[in-house]
Design a protein around this nucleic acid. Structure first.
Lengths: 127, 127
DNA sequence: CGGTATCCACTGAGATACTG
DNA sequence: CAGTATCTCAGTGGATACCG
């Protein structure tokens, strides 16, 4: 049986280091303002944050609430539908955790040679 | 509690349309030769196939068996450890399938406007 | 505050040609 | 057959400045 590849879909959403980081923050902290997300995710630019949030909003994973006031205030949160991402993120996270261990076993703790884990970010865990 | 982000790790492996396509083929067909993979994955270039396979091999997900003969013969397969990817792939695939449905509900069947599903590939399913 | 708009540097990936 | 070596170019994302 052949089916259309669902990874394309899943990967479009999860791909890129930024989207997963955003989702993680929102899942942990609940509602967050644009500036809070910026502070919580070091090194992300406004451009990227805006872009990624827009995509997540289009996919009905993130909700964007605008408060029409001066100065503006915009809050982001995970939609009810978006909560379905949690098990996916969790599964990937669990596997990733195990895989870090596995790589250490294979190549030793200092595995600078190819694994490229230098850009791992410290974030709150899913639990 | 803060932990190192495991998504970086998981995404490094799963990211890119090619790696997931390769894993899918190998999971379905078992052992495959380089040229078989090339035929099975239309539009992938030798360069990309080689590169992705190398990375998967480094991560102990794919095994590379070289038969020292002329003409050369190289077979690729999923390692025992690599089988652990299956649930991850399955979870992502399941969510992706549901998400396609969700997008159709929201935006209608013809959702050319932003979802960019035009590059979905036909592949054998995990089942 | 929460964005857009513009420019620019870098990289990922395709095409092509060559090799053991 | 199964790669490697270059070249090239489009797209991604960073920096900066401006706007409602």
């Amino acid at each position: 049986m052949t089916v259309y590849c669902k990874f394309g879909t899943a990967l479009d959403i999860l791909t890129g280091k930024w989207k997963s980081l955003i989702l993680l923050r929102l899942l942990n902290h609940g509602t967050m303002r644009f500036s809070e997300l910026q502070k919580a995710i070091p090194d992300i630019s406004k451009k990227m944050l805006t872009q990624q949030l827009k995509e997540l909003e289009y996919h009905d994973i993130v909700h964007r609430e605008v408060y029409p006031q001066i100065p503006p205030k915009v809050e982001y949160s995970i939609t009810e539908y978006g909560q379905l991402m949690k098990p996916v993120l969790q599964t990937m996270s669990d596997w990733g955790a195990g895989h870090v261990k596995h790589m250490e076993k294979l190549y030793g703790k200092g595995d600078e040679a190819g694994a490229n884990e230098s850009d791992l970010q410290k974030v709150d865990s899913l639990q």
